[in-house]
Amino acid sequence: MTAHSETGHSGTQQGATNLMTEIKLGPAANIPAGQGRVYEVEGERIAVFRTRGGDVYAVQAECPHRGGPLADGLLGGTTLICPLHSLKFDIKTGAALFGDCGLKTFPVAVDASGQVVLLR
């Protein structure tokens, strides 16, 4: 499995930066391939997706349009379709593929033990 995040792998190195803390969310296998699940991290709801290719990505849990539950959306590659009104986003970059409001992304990776690790 590979990891993708805005900060790349540097953030996973111990002491690389004092601003980043690692939060283990649980086994990646808890997220079925091609789907997303919601985690609540320090009061913030985050949708974590695992693509069929095995990559993980994390974005805000609610659609900026009308608050649709993004983890219930359809995922193909890194394109996500919101279940309420079919707005599209790229979960890798957070970019809106339609409309002008994108998603907040979070650096996330899978560590050697298969745990999903969120960096904050």
Partner: peptide
Amino acid sequence: DEKDARFINERIHANIQKDG
């Protein structure tokens, strides 16, 4: 059946509403 290929309604056999 691959759940991720299904729209959420057919994934969990209920109709999604505006508030999720």
